[in-house]
Simulated assay, not measured.
Amino acid sequence: MSYSPSIYKFVDGGDVPVPPDLDVVRAVLEPHDVGDPRLTVAEDGSLQFWIRASDGSEAEISADETGILVERPHAGGVFAIVAELVSRLGAVVIDSSTGSIVCREEERTQLPAAMQEDAVVIEMTGEALSAALLGAAS
Score class of each variant (00 low, 15 high):
67 G>V: 02
99 G>C: 01
127 E>M: 09
32 H>N: 12
53 A>M: 09
22 L>D: 02
33 D>K: 02
37 P>K: 06
101 I>G: 00
45 G>R: 14
80 A>C: 03
28 V>G: 06
11 V>E: 05
73 P>Y: 11
53 A>E: 09
39 L>C: 05
6 S>Q: 14
54 S>Q: 13
102 V>I: 15
14 G>R: 05
115 M>P: 00
86 V>I: 15
10 F>A: 03
126 G>W: 03
8 Y>T: 00
14 G>K: 04
101 I>D: 00
17 P>Q: 00
120 V>Y: 01
24 V>P: 08
93 V>A: 01
24 V>R: 04
119 A>L: 05
96 S>V: 15
36 D>N: 15
50 W>E: 11
137 A>S: 12
1 M>I: 12
76 G>Q: 05
6 S>V: 08
99 G>P: 01
92 V>C: 15
1 M>Q: 11
67 G>K: 03
8 Y>Q: 01
9 K>M: 00
20 P>M: 06
138 S>G: 14
136 A>D: 10
44 D>R: 04
109 T>L: 10
102 V>D: 02
61 I>T: 11
124 M>H: 07
35 G>N: 03
25 V>R: 11
99 G>M: 00
126 G>Y: 03
24 V>E: 08
116 Q>D: 03
91 A>C: 14
86 V>S: 08
43 E>L: 07
49 F>E: 05
130 S>Y: 02
113 A>G: 01
107 E>S: 14
122 I>M: 09
6 S>I: 06
116 Q>W: 01
56 G>A: 10
55 D>I: 06
56 G>D: 07
23 D>I: 03
18 V>K: 05
85 L>I: 07
105 E>Q: 15
1 M>P: 10
75 A>P: 08
91 A>Y: 08
137 A>G: 11
93 V>E: 00
48 Q>E: 08
100 S>M: 13
133 L>R: 04
15 D>A: 14
128 A>R: 10
135 G>F: 09
18 V>G: 01
45 G>D: 14
9 K>C: 00
37 P>E: 08
83 A>P: 04
62 S>F: 09
116 Q>M: 09
2 S>V: 14
89 L>M: 05
102 V>K: 03
114 A>Q: 14
113 A>Y: 04
56 G>R: 11
120 V>S: 09
23 D>K: 13
106 E>V: 08
108 R>Q: 14
20 P>W: 05
96 S>I: 13
117 E>A: 15
114 A>V: 14
81 I>A: 06
114 A>G: 14
94 I>R: 13
136 A>L: 12
113 A>T: 08
48 Q>K: 09
98 T>Y: 06
11 V>D: 00
9 K>G: 00
100 S>T: 11
41 V>W: 10
97 S>W: 13
50 W>I: 10
74 H>V: 06
92 V>M: 12
